Amino acid sequence: MKKLLLVAICILSMLCTACGSTTDEKEVADNTKTETLKIGLMPDIDSIPFIIAQEKGYFKEEGVDVELQYFKSAMDRDSALQSGNLDGGVSDMLAAGFAKAGGFDVKITSSTNGNYCLIAGTGNTAKSLAEMKGQNISVSKNTIIEFVLDEMLAQNNMTEADINKTVIPQIPTRLEMLQNGKLDGAVLPEPMGSIAVKNGSYLVNSSEAMKINPGVMVFTNDSVENKKEVIKAMYRAYDKAIEYLNSTPQEEYMDLVIETAGLPPATKDALVMPKYMKAALPEKSDWDKSINWLNKKELVTEKYNYEDIVSDILTK
């Protein structure tokens, strides 16, 4: 009887150990399971760090699964964000202001390194904005592109009435028409601006030269609240990509970037990469300029404060 009791105890002990082991393994699996962030990118230099972080495996190193989606126009990107198909995206302060005014709560989480260029088209002899008076300059309406052009006009004591704004939302189409002589000028993000210059156009001015930086990264408020640690992990991977970009000759990765982002092949020879900055909160002055522009054009009625739109997720 004692032997039978001893055997029963041993069997019970083994079963308990097995159950405990299974439970522990399940807990470990749950804890290491990656969460997905869906991020929208545009064909510009702001998107390159995300491409590098993906291709170099930095996202995986930080335990986050990032799905990158590519868009040719800001309108398409914003539609995807507001329909719930994206957690966040490479964007700008104007788009963030529009979203908030429309009842869709987004948060700016960091600034980006984009540059927006006013280019005089092929065959255009204008070397300054003043010389482009009365000419057709293409923009995407009510976007960062138009904002940059208006800032340039103001600096030159000019108004919208001094030029003819031609609305072409899709960036590749704008570039093609500029190079084909169908436009006098256009505002383009990098690398499209450099490509146009490489192909015979002229750089008139840029947001970098004006020392304004309205380019930002945005996330939905829901993602900021419910995926905070995942977003912070994404930014750790992003900063690794910045270190790589700033220390690696661009010819070593440009083919990859062109293929992945669908950039024109001419990008490889035309673009000089910027010195990227690691993720950081945007300047308050840049937000003030952006919201003032939206208010002045009566596109947004509320004067949202910096604290209303910017998340401190990077500092907490």
Rank of each mutant, 00 (worst) to 15 (best):
G193R: 03
D239M: 02
T125L: 11
F59N: 04
V272K: 14
P282Q: 01
K133R: 12
D239R: 00
M192W: 14
S73E: 11
D150C: 09
P264Q: 06
L86D: 09
A209S: 14
G114R: 03
M75H: 12
T23V: 13
N85C: 01
T315G: 04
D24S: 12
A280D: 11
P274I: 03
V167A: 10
N115C: 15
M1L: 13
N113D: 13
A233P: 00
E229K: 14
T159C: 05
Q54R: 15
F219G: 01
M75K: 15
E35H: 12
D78K: 13
K127G: 10
M234K: 10
V139K: 12
Q155P: 00
K297A: 09
K133V: 04
P264M: 05
Y238F: 13
L245W: 03
A154Q: 14
N156P: 03
G84K: 07
D162G: 01
L81Q: 01
K297S: 11
A237W: 02
L188V: 01
G103T: 07
S91R: 05
E283K: 15
L12D: 07
P49W: 08
G97H: 03
S79K: 15
K227S: 12
Q69V: 11
Y276M: 08
P249L: 02
E190L: 13
L6S: 11
N142K: 11
P282S: 03
N142S: 14
Y244G: 01
D24F: 14
I231G: 01
M210F: 01
D288F: 00
A120H: 03
Y235Q: 04
F104Q: 08
M234V: 08
L314C: 01
L175K: 07
G84N: 08
T166G: 07
L178I: 02
L263R: 07
N142V: 08
V197A: 11
N115D: 15
A196D: 04
E225A: 11
T34S: 12
V197M: 07
N136M: 10
L271W: 10
Y306W: 07
P274F: 03
D288G: 01
I195L: 05
S247A: 14
T173E: 15
E190S: 10
A99V: 03
L149E: 05
G103L: 06
E243C: 04
S206T: 10
E160T: 08
K141P: 05
D92T: 03
E307S: 14
M1C: 11
Q69G: 02
